[in-house]
């Protein structure tokens, strides 16, 4: 096996709610290698954010992990105590979020929040921490970093707040950065800046990145390999190039088709009919079958296994009888 930093194996998780038991994650599997950018793509509610939170050990009270493990550097995150987790969080694995301004505490200055994070994982005094904070802000190309340190989060733009979050996330040179839709709330010109920054930092620090997004465009720009998630399972997995150039899973095909492109102009967009299933009572077999135009009898009964359909390209679909992985 190659050098793997994170390995999610057979992760199946339910959530208890007032309406009933939500069967959210259904046997999720993927691996992230050292020094790569791995994209987890899917539409809202597909379970990609839940997965990322589980990797951070942020398990909600109502979650029931039915099976599976999450190995970070060979150790199962799900079995760690809160204090073990706190030694990893922000130090070995860091995370940035979709809503950067909301991720910063509104009533403390940027300076104080950065110092708290730096002093938490590093044995330094306050002045050194402040110095480090300034250096970090320069590292993330923050314009006017001295002023930003003295600002409150609401005085920052979305792009600037995300740079602060990134600066805090890389303060202890983590091995893995989880980026949960970090550019979704940003304008397209600012998104481009942040994507470029993440790429640069990833190369400079040699860290791995788990990039979670719904945007196939962002994935195509940034990620080396991806996993496409649908309704709590990874349905396509492998190199970004192969999956997007030559999609084999009907869901991936549908997604690629649904993106409005110049060549579709004047023609109806080939959309995926229906909507995402309800987790209270998800479809049996392949969870995509009610929306799949190629659905067969077997799809309604049995969940398909991951099979290899090409070089570095795997899908979970009964249409493909390739060799099992």
């Amino acid at each position: 096996m190659e050098d793997v930093i994170l390995s999610v194996e057979n992760l199946t998780v339910d959530f208890y709610t007032y309406e009933g038991v939500l069967h959210v994650l259904d046997d999720v599997n993927f691996k992230i290698k050292r020094g790569e950018i791995f994209g987890l793509v899917g539409e809202s509610g597909c379970g990609k954010s839940v997965t990322s939170r589980l990797i951070m050990g942020l398990v909600a009270n109502n979650a029931n992990i039915r099976s599976g493990r999450i190995l970070f550097n060979g150790k199962d995150v799900l079995k760690m105590s809160e204090s073990e987790l706190n030694r990893i969080r922000g130090k070995e694995i860091s995370m940035i979020f979709q809503n950067p301004i909301g991720s910063l505490n509104p009533v403390f200055k940027v300076k104080d929040q950065m110092i708290n994070v730096i002093m938490n994982h590093q044995e330094v005094d306050k002045d050194t921490a402040l110095d480090k904070a300034l250096k970090l802000l320069k590292l993330v190309n923050m314009p006017d970093p001295e002023r930003v340190l003295e600002s409150y989060p609401f005085e920052l733009s979305g792009g600037m707040a995300q740079r602060v979050m990134i600066a805090m996330a890389i303060s202890s040179k983590p091995k893995l950065l989880i980026a949960d839709e970090p550019t979704t709330a940003l304008d397209v010109t600012i998104q481009a800046q942040i994507l470029k920054l993440i790429k640069e930092l990833q190369e400079k620090l040699g860290m791995s990145v788990l990039f979670i997004t719904h945007d196939l465009g962002v994935v195509a720009q940034l990620c080396d390999r991806i996993g496409v998630m649908y309704a709590g399972s990874v349905v396509a997995y492998g190199s970004t190039y192969n999956i997007l150039k030559n999609p084999k899973h009907p869901y991936t095909m549908g997604l690629m088709g649904a993106i409005p492109r110049p060549e579709h102009k004047g023609k109806p967009l080939p959309s995926i009919k229906g909507s995402v299933p309800n987790y209270l009572d998800p479809p049996k077999g392949c969870r995509f079958h009610p929306r799949c135009q190629y659905a067969m009898e077997i799809c309604k009964k049995e969940k398909p296994r991951m099979v290899k359909v090409g070089e570095n390209h795997y899908v979970a679909c009964w249409l493909h009888g390739g060799e099992e992985d």
Binding site: M56, L58, G90, K91, L104, P106, F108, N116, N120
Partner: peptide
């Protein structure tokens, strides 16, 4: 979100309580 983010940064309970209380 900022409390989640603070937890994800591994900040100890004491600081999280301070963050929340203010």
């Amino acid at each position: 979100q900022y409390i989640n983010a603070a937890r994800a940064m591994g900040l100890p309970k004491k600081i999280i309580t301070k963050y929340a209380l203010k």
